[in-house]
């Protein structure tokens, strides 16, 4: 094995290796959607976040506009504090409504933003004024049964 052809094959090997990493990064994973170029931070308080996870998506009108970066429990108010980074290109009014929604019946949970009509925009570090917690299936079923039970005697 002479030097030149050895170098050639090693070079080929390394190139294919880097190509594979690139393929994994760009085609399999998605570097671009995970890291927005410029972001700002918003905070939302929820009574219950359900199954929301760190790195979960933040969507508005179905478009991913940011990611959840931190989830804490606020022991003063007994609420969940969710921090998210929003893509700097998108701005939302002060009275935007943040709610925790579920993709499909059993899919992953995400934060949905419904824009309000306020003139002023949310700045980095602001907190959402109005939020809606996750729908917990057990509670929903409980409420349903309770209302059924209370309406039955009246009906007869």
């Amino acid at each position: 094995m002479n030097r030149k052809s050895l170098d050639l094959w090693v070079g080929f090997f390394v190139a294919v290796g880097f190509f594979a990493v690139l393929f994994l990064a760009l085609r399999v994973g998605n570097v671009s959607s995970a890291n927005f170029a410029e972001t700002y931070r918003l905070i939302a308080k929820f009574d219950n976040i359900g199954g929301l996870k760190v790195r979960g998506p933040v969507k508005s009108a179905g478009v991913v506009v940011g990611r959840v970066t931190e989830i804490h429990f606020d022991s003063q108010n007994y609420e969940a504090l969710v921090t998210m980074m929003i893509d700097g290109r998108y701005r939302f009014p002060k009275d935007t409504f943040a709610s925790i929604l579920t993709a499909g019946l059993l899919g992953e949970q995400y934060i949905g933003l419904d824009a309000g009509g306020d003139e002023k925009m949310l700045q980095s570090g602001d907190t959402f004024a109005r939020t809606q917690s996750a729908v917990v299936l057990e509670k929903l079923i409980g409420q349903f049964l309770f209302s059924k039970a209370s309406e039955t005697p009246g009906g007869k």
């Binding site: 990493v21 994994l24 990064a25 085609r27 399999v28 994973g29 998605n30 570097v31 959607s33 995970a34 790195r55």
Partner: peptide
């Protein structure tokens, strides 16, 4: 779906 769930840092 693959691109939505595979994270470059965390997985790759």
């Amino acid at each position: 779906q693959m691109q939505g769930s595979v994270d470059f840092y965390l997985d790759v």
